[in-house]
Design a protein around this nucleic acid. Structure first.
Lengths: 213, 213
DNA sequence: CTCATTTTTGAGATTTTTCTCATTTTTCTT
DNA sequence: AAGAAAAATGAGAAAAATCTCAAAAATGAG
């Protein structure tokens, strides 16, 4: 077990009984291995050996890789959306909400480089996860439309385009430098119809007010 | 061999000697199978049986799947960029060039649904292909910048964002309806800094002048 | 601490996929 | 049409991955 990264599931299960703790070990190891080799290419034994468990142990918990991915991605979705939502309290301005949510998401990706990668792969492979994870995004888009800031039509394609922009940033710069985060946020706002100048200013404002550290 | 789709490589090799013809059969079958199962999930025997060849024949031509993918994707890139370029002769207006190139690309994807899928997967897995395939795009972006129509900075991330928007359209609507093509072209122009209204008008113009059929 | 219950283990059976190569078949030049 | 060279074949060896299960080890409730 390469114990450098934050052990999300392990921490959630301390105190609980053995079964839950082992399941969590598998989930955390799956994150690491899926992130480094990709879902398709990972073998059951990659996960169990990363977890320092016997190969057979996997089968006490899951039928196959897909079932495991479902659990992993669902857990990541809950954790990540939770973290973003905490920061959004009380914001009513549509563009600010979208910019901040995007920036926060990419910020999580910087702190935990494996999470977003695995979540996006999961959303892609387990489609029923998608509607659950994009519901917040849709709400913020609708707010911005009602306020007249976004002058485009919301549809499924638009939501997928936004996810695609986020994925593009993650792919090109897995470390998520500030520059990549800013450029991605600006790209999202331009996609939603803001001018380049307004997009830039909106992102500057969000960085100053909400992401100073 | 499910002979419905256009046999790109087979046609290029008619008249040539057997070795080239068989190689082309493998390449065409690879397109079909990669497109339907995805690269990772396809087995060598999926390709040979689709091609109605013996399993061993594969190894007379390629060491492994990756080598085959390289050949397939390179051939597709040449064919597709060639088709797009044919239509771009004499156009000097940056936004028109970008909109038309995007629309033509998606149009090819409609006529040959497998090609763009496989090319994009290839570009992703065989990175050295990427710089070759995006060079045309970069040129058109620079034209638009010089003319003052695009007021954003060109960099690697921007190019990847454009590819991502294209992939998002293909993923959501593999049949590439006119609506999807238009929305994708508009999204690309907005990403480049045009207003929603200008993007819409630019795309309308391109459809009227260059894509009437 | 005890011991019934739960969990883990890993050797190996099974399944899947890759890869080889002696033989057969096809090609194509003369 | 002959026949040397080129190409295709497919059975089966080898490698890689999955999955099972009887035995061993760990757990934790009383």
């Amino acid at each position: 077990m390469a114990a450098t990264a934050h052990q999300l599931f392990r921490e959630q299960s301390t105190g609980k009984k053995k079964r839950e703790r082992t399941r969590s070990t598998l989930l955390d190891s799956a994150i690491s291995v899926f992130a480094s080799k990709g879902f398709e290419a990972t073998r059951i034994t990659d996960i169990t050996s990363h977890a320092e468990l016997a190969n057979g142990t996997f089968y006490n918990y899951y039928q196959d890789k897909d079932e495991l991915l479902r659990d992993v991605a669902t857990g990541l979705a809950v954790e990540i959306t939770g973290r973003i939502n905490d920061e959004m309290e009380g914001l009513t301005h549509g563009p600010t909400r979208v910019a901040l949510a995007t920036a926060r998401l990419l910020h999580v990706a910087r702190q935990e480089p494996e999470w977003l990668n695995v979540l996006l792969e999961g959303v892609f492979i387990v489609p029923e996860l998608q509607s659950a994870t994009v519901q917040y995004l849709r709400q913020d888009l609708e707010i911005g439309i009602e306020q007249g800031h976004f002058t485009i039509e919301i549809n499924l394609l638009l939501v997928n385009q936004i996810l695609s922009l986020i994925r593009a940033g993650l792919l090109l710069d897995p470390d998520m430098s500030d520059a990549t985060i800013r450029q991605t946020c600006e790209a999202v706002l331009r996609l939603l119809g803001l001018t380049p100048t307004k997009s830039r200013k909106q992102v500057d404002k969000v960085f100053q007010r909400h992401l100073e550290n």
